[in-house]
C-alpha cells in the first residue's frame, strides 16, 4: 500500500516538475533578498548564511506543501482513495516522503546559491546533505499534516505557515546550528548533538503525525 501511494506521489511530482523549478527560483530569490538585509559585508553574510538558507527553505516549503494537496482536493481524489479502502497512514507517509524528497532536493539545489551569494563554501558536503535531509524531514512531517488540514479551509495560505512555523522551531534551530557549524567550523564537534536533536524531532513527529493523519482527512 505504501509503495502504491509513493508511486502515485512521485508520478504526480514528476508531472508538476515545472512547479519545482518555480519554487527553486523563489527560494533563490529569497536568499538574494536576505542579503539586502545585511548589506554587502562578506563576513556577516557568511556568518548568517546557514540561517538564510534555512529561512529560505522554510518559506519555500509552504509553497511545496500547499501544492502537494492541491491535486488531492480539486476533484476530491484523496477521498476517492480513502474509500477504496486505502490505508490513511500509507497515504500520509507516501505524501510526507514525497514532500521530504522535494524539500531535500530544493535544499541541495540552494547550496550553490548560498555558496555564491554568501561565500559560504564547505568541504563537508555529505554532512551538509545529511543535515538538509534531516531538516527537510522535520519540515515535511508536520507540514504534510497541516497542509492536509488547511487545504480544506479558506485562508489556507495564511493558516499553513501560522500553524507550522512555531511548531518547527526546534528543527529550525538544530538545522541552522548544524549547518552553521559545518560552514564556519566546528572545533568541538558539536554537530553530532544537533543532528541527534534533529533526528529525535523527526522520529517523534513522523510517528505522531502518521497516527493523527486519519483524523484530519476523514469527514
Amino acid at each position: 500500500m505504501l509503495t502504491a501511494a509513493l508511486r502515485k506521489e512521485l508520478l504526480l511530482q514528476w508531472r508538476s516538475r515545472a512547479q519545482f523549478m518555480a519554487v527553486f527560483v523563489f527560494g533563490a530569490a529569497a536568499l538574494l533578498l536576505f542579503s539586502f538585509a545585511v548589506g554587502p559585508v562578506a563576513e556577516l553574510l557568511r556568518q548568517f548564511s546557514a540561517g538564510f538558507l534555512w529561512l529560505g527553505l522554510l518559506l519555500s516549503s509552504t509553497l511545496t506543501l500547499a501544492e502537494s494537496f492541491h491535486a488531492e482536493m480539486e476533484n476530491r481524489a484523496m477521498e476517492g482513495l480513502l474509500l477504496l479502502p486505502a490505508n490513511p497512514r500509507a497515504l500520509y507517509y507516501g505524501k510526507a516522503i514525497a514532500n521530504w524528497l522535494q524539500l531535500t532536493l530544493l535544499g541541495i539545489a540552494l547550496i550553490p546559491v548560498m555558496v555564491v551569494l554568501y561565500d559560504a563554501g564547505t568541504t563537508r558536503i555529505p554532512m551538509l546533505i545529511l543535515v538538509i535531509a534531516l531538516g527537510a524531514a522535520g519540515l515535511s512531517a508536520p507540514g504534510t499534516l497541516y497542509a492536509a488540514m488547511t487545504a480544506q479551509v479558506r485562508s489556507k495560505q495564511t493558516l499553513l505557515p501560522l500553524l507550522l512555523f512555531p511548531l518547527i522551531v526546534p528543527a529550525l534551530l538544530a538545522s541552522v546550528k548544524a549547518t552553521s557549524l559545518i560552514i564556519l567550523g566546528d572545533p568541538m564537534n558539536q554537530v553530532r548533538s544537533w543532528i541527534v536533536l534533529l533526528a529525535s524531532f523527526d522520529a517523534i513527529y513522523w510517528s505522531l503525525c502518521g497516527l493523527l493523519f486519519e483524523k484530519v482527512v476523514e469527514e
Binding site: 504526480l12 491535486a71 480539486e74 476517492g80 477504496l84
Partner: peptide
C-alpha cells in the same frame, strides 16, 4: 466529484486505483 487527478492520464488514474486495491 470525479476523484481524478487532472495532471495524470486516464490510464494512470486507473492504474493508481488498481495499485491501491
Amino acid at each position: 466529484a470525479s476523484y481524478l487527478y487532472d495532471s495524470l492520464t486516464a490510464r494512470e488514474n486507473l492504474s493508481i486505483v488498481a495499485d491501491h486495491l
